[in-house]
Design a protein around this nucleic acid. Structure first.
Length: 672
RNA sequence: GCUUCCAUAGCUCAGCUGGAUAGAGCAACGCCCUUCUAAGGCGGAGGUCGAAGGUUCAAAUCCUUCUGGGAGCACCA
């Protein structure tokens, strides 16, 4: 049942019968809930156009509705009885929903497998990219937003019927890796790898390997010939021999890198990485020589030169395991833990596309793509005659190849899109990073569209969220040294939740404090508008009072408690199938309206790539329920039929809240 | 300098394509646990929506200018 549409149709039919257009007409939730449930501005906008008094027009429309109620106009005859219409100053048409209509709405919502959340008409495949987590350093509070917002957006799309894929898209390919490895090398952590004897041994094997590579190419050729049945029957013995030799050679080729692979990286722990990267990062700003070496080191990794490449892979493995663990704490799951490096195989191909299409040009030794569009280079009006003419700056060109031949962030991002489009038929790719990367993504998107790497119909979206700032108003940065680790924050939240549970005498399973603590943090984050910066306030996160995640979880827990007691003490078990609704009291109305608003919040959030409307609507439903719960004795209600109606409301609220919590990526809890 | 974002209650923030008396939460004050979980409920108090113009029946919302602040501006990611 789409109440808003039904109201709209009635008003529109009436308007037509009066010879008026429906353009620009809107039906919205009332800003005066005591007065009415919905409001329409139709008479206000139209009054202007027609040069008529809005209030008078509103009254005429309302009168007409009641006239047409018993007429043949089907849409009105069918639905008008569900609502009460009245005109109000300065020309609003106000609508109140009949109690019976609300009860029917609840009934239908309860029976619907999507709980009344409207599904998208044409489901799409959405690919989420959570750029940001960096392999060289541990996750800190600044890394929280992308998984929190991303997971919730992903689930929102799922709740609305889209298919989704998510890639953690780890930062594992750039300068930070070169810096880290160089620093580790200088500090003696990698002596075993750069041992002279090992290096000599490797070089020897490398030469053999090079020969092998050639052989393998020949082998491939032979193998293909072997596949031809005719050849094989005549030359079977020879073919088998060739294939065997090929296998042997392939083994030999691998062995060169094995020399390094066998060396354990046991002295390099996460703590070491946490020290080494910031150290190197600071140093590169003051030590030019060091920066040059780091660039070279980065290039070596990208060229898969040993032992850099093997060391890099080992660091990556170590780090990915840790990142995974952290994300799992936050209920964030990915279909892929790919990184920038996974697109490495597509980089050359990508660059070639730009070169072949004549889109790339050389500039100061680097390869760049002009992404500025026509009309972006316009003169700025002079304020005085002697002022030199200035121009608005168009978007600067994107660099896809460094002077030294290395790849950049843009290169791998474009190559990644190429890779994804080969693997999947994606309707939209959504990037989640902070807004400091806005220009980068605009450049990448334009590059992809120019080169046809992203099909025209494919939507590329950058969700540029605000940075999480410290008390000083500055973003949390690894470079600044002052880092609050993600793990520490989550730890504090868990401890706080555990304390509260003990205080309340609730027996807890191991995961309960985490669910509550993380729920508080997530709700705190998602209640903010996505694109704005917000202050990371540890006390705010730790607060479980008021408009918070735990408040919603608590509401669910209270309902669970009532439903369990109903089952045990009254032998009544409410399910979707045996719900019965009656919406009479103001508290009950508030709940029904809150569910109506919650369901429309899904669409609002879907359109806006934001979650705060859903947070707010879920909170308001919980709040409406708390009011009801406080005023209404449920289990002690003597009339059994009435009791079932009350329990049905409890059940529906619980279902709706759990769905909203799930969408936000927050766990519901049985007790707390 | 250019690009872009922001400014709403003491604090943290909502406010959708202009609409009726600008809303929450926190903090502070006053009530409500012999009755289903008080991490709760109810009640007041708190505002020249950064400033000034403009558009109109109507502006926190749209336009212009100004003030204050954040971020980004080619080989970092």
């Amino acid at each position: 049942m789409n109440i808003k549409n039904e109201i709209y149709e009635i008003l529109c039919e009436v308007a037509k019968s009066l010879g008026l257009e429906c353009d620009g007409m809107a039906v919205a939730f009332s800003s005066r809930p005591q007065m009415c449930d919905y409001q329409s501005n139709f008479a206000l906008t139209l009054g202007k156009k027609l040069g008529r008094q809005p209030l008078e027009l509103a009254e005429q429309i309302v009168q007409k509705i009641y006239e047409l109620k018993n007429s043949k106009v089907e849409k009105i005859a069918k639905n008008a009885g569900k609502f009460e219409f009245f005109a109000a100053m300065p020309g609003f048409i106000n609508i109140k929903i009949a109690p019976q209509t609300l009860a029917e709405f609840c009934q239908q919502t309860c029976l619907d497998k999507n709980l009344g959340v409207e599904q998208v008409k044409n489901p799409r495949l959405i690919f989420f990219d959570y750029g940001g987590a960096n392999v060289a350093k541990e996750l800190h509070v600044g890394h929280l937003r992308s998984p929190i917002v991303g997971e919730a957006l992903k689930r929102l799309h799922m709740a609305m019927g889209d298919r989704v894929l998510a890639d953690a898209h780890l930062g594992d390919y750039g300068l930070q890796m070169g810096l880290t490895i160089l620093q580790l090398k200088e500090d003696g952590f990698l002596d075993k790898f750069f041992d002279k004897r090992k290096m000599a041994e490797f070089e020897k094997l490398q030469k053999t390997a090079e020969k092998c590579q050639k052989d393998i190419k020949n082998c491939d050729k032979s193998s293909k010939e072997c596949e031809n049945i005719n050849n094989c029957t005549t030359n079977e013995a020879k073919c088998t021999e060739t294939v065997e030799k090929c296998g042997e050679n392939a083994e030999n080729c691998k062995k060169a890198a094995d020399i390094f692979d066998e060396i354990p990286l046991d002295n390099v722990t996460l703590d070491v990485l946490n020290d080494e990267y910031p150290k190197a990062s600071k140093r590169k700003d003051v030590d030019e020589q060091f920066k040059k070496q780091a660039d070279l080191c980065t290039l070596y990794i990208q060229q898969q030169k040993e032992p850099y490449y093997t060391i890099y892979k080992k660091i990556r493995t170590l780090s990915v395991a840790e990142i995974k663990k952290n994300y799992e704490l936050l209920n964030c799951n990915f279909d892929f833990y790919y990184g920038e490096s996974d697109a490495a195989d597509y980089v050359d191909q990508t660059v070639k596309i730009f070169v072949d299409k004549g889109l790339a040009r050389e500039s100061e030794g680097a390869l760049v793509v002009d992404v500025a569009r026509e009309g972006e280079h316009v003169p700025i009006p002079k304020k005085s005659d002697d002022e030199p003419q200035r121009y608005k700056n168009p978007m600067p060109p994107a660099i896809i190849k460094k002077r030294n031949g290395g790849d950049l962030y843009a290169t791998t991002d474009i190559a990644t899109i190429l890779m994804r489009n080969k693997d999947f038929d994606i309707d939209e790719i959504v990037y989640l990073t902070d807004n400091r990367q806005g220009q980068h993504f605009q450049q990448v998107f334009r590059c992809c569209k120019l080169a046809g790497i992203s099909p025209e119909k494919q939507k590329l979206t950058h969700i540029a969220f605000g940075t999480m700032n410290g008390a000083d108003g500055k973003p949390f940065k690894t470079r600044s040294g002052e880092v609050v680790r993600l793990k520490e924050v989550v730890g504090l939240l868990i401890d706080k939740a555990r304390g509260k549970l003990i205080e309340n005498g609730i027996a807890q399973d191991d995961d309960l404090p985490r669910k509550i603590g993380v729920g508080a943090m997530k709700f705190g984050d998602l209640s903010n508008t996505v694109e704005k910066d917000y202050v990371f306030d540890i006390d705010k996160f730790l607060s479980f009072d008021g408009k918070t995640g735990p408040y919603l979880q608590y509401t669910v827990a209270r309902i669970n408690s009532v439903l369990t007691k109903a089952k045990n003490e009254k032998n009544v078990q409410i399910s979707r199938k045996n719900c019965v609704f009656s919406i009479q009291t103001p508290d009950e109305r508030n709940i029904a309206m809150a569910i109506l608003k919650l369901n429309s919040a899904y669409q609002v959030c879907y359109d806006a790539y934001s979650l705060n409307a859903l947070c707010l609507a879920a909170f308001e439903l919980a709040s409406a329920f708390s009011g009801f719960y406080n005023n209404q004795k449920i289990l002690s209600e003597p009339d059994e039929a009435k009791r079932i109606q009350l329990l049905s409301i409890c059940f529906l609220v619980k279902e709706c809240l759990e769905k909203a919590l799930w969408t936000l990526g927050i766990d519901s809890v049985e007790k707390m």
